[in-house]
């Protein structure tokens, strides 16, 4: 029971921090000033607020956010400001200041799991060798490759020498081409998957095939050539655009709304340790 409660408490506290960091404004709202930068000195920022100049002293607790044409405002140092910038400035609420250290903590925690991953791999492969399972020699190659990879990794960023050569050979001349080869397999997999998908087995499959046919033909010149004599709304490129940007967008946005609300529900269940039947419902 103690383990379960401890996990629930840590989960709640970690979730609470991220929740508060998101909903609490980064600066104290009633002491935040919004305006256009007139001038900046190491001691103060002069802002134009409602037609009047206002001086904001530069203090350690001051946070300045510069508005951007798109996206969320960015946090900047006073020295980075230029006249004409639209900013909001005020005393920090501290929560956002801790975001980077907290994120770093989780990155460090996550990096510890790499060790567990390696242990898991070592257990599987050592088991293969011990029990002489089929293709056990592949597991021997695994241990050799791990050793070689660790040594070659030491050459990362080196200017010269055999370690750099080893790093280049392992990562640039072996791993990268092999990854590209795997990626290229996708083309063949797509072909076989498409072949199966295009077999008309039901009404939905027929609809999918028809829309795929229209979209594919609409994307290539022959689509226009085949239908250029028809009214514009019956021309394949126009129909393809309609399928892609009207019908498809409507369906995708519908999915998105559902998923976002679903994500809130899943998040809440995990945050408050209400998830039952899958996690922590009985102490081991």
């Amino acid at each position: 029971m103690t383990k379960r409660r401890f996990i629930a408490l840590v989960t709640f506290l970690a979730g609470l921090y991220y929740f508060l960091e998101f909903v609490v404004p980064p600066t104290i709202p009633w002491r935040t000033v919004r305006g256009e930068v007139v001038s900046v000195s190491p001691q103060s920022i002069t802002l134009l607020v409602n037609g009047q100049q206002q001086q904001i002293p530069v203090e350690p607790t001051l946070k300045v956010y510069r508005e951007r044409p798109t996206g969320a405002p960015e946090s900047v140092e006073p020295a980075q400001l230029r006249p004409g910038d639209r900013v909001s400035a005020g005393p920090t609420t501290y929560l956002s200041d801790w975001l980077t250290p907290v994120n770093n903590f989780f990155i460090v925690l996550g990096s510890m799991a790499w060790g567990m991953g390696l242990i898991s791999l070592a257990m599987v492969h050592s088991g293969n060798i011990r029990r002489r399972r089929p293709e056990w020699y592949g597991s021997v190659v695994f241990f050799l490759a791990v050793g070689g990879g660790i040594v070659a990794g030491l050459g990362y960023g080196a200017e010269g020498g055999w370690l750099k050569e080893a790093n280049d050979v392992v990562f640039n001349y072996l791993l990268r081409p092999m990854s590209s080869t795997v990626f290229s397999l996708l083309a063949f997999h797509m072909a076989t998957a498409s072949y199966r998908a295009f077999r008309v087995k039901s009404g939905e499959a027929a609809l999918m095939m028809t829309s795929a046919f229209v979209v594919m033909l609409g994307q290539i010149p022959i689509g226009l050539w085949l239908t250029h004599g028809l009214p514009s709304f019956l021309q394949l490129p126009v129909m393809a655009q309609w399928v892609l940007y009207i019908a498809n967008s409507a369906a995708v946005r519908g999915m998105w709304f559902g998923m976002m609300v679903g994500a809130i529900a899943v998040g809440l269940r995990f945050w408050l340790s209400l998830e039952r039947g899958a996690f922590f419902d009985r102490e081991l």
Binding site: M255, G258, M259, V261, G262, A263, A265, V266, E275, G277, A278
Partner: peptide, 8 residues
């Protein structure tokens, strides 16, 4: 989509 979130 969201059916995945409803799976549990």
């Amino acid at each position: 989509g969201e059916e995945l979130y409803a799976a549990s």
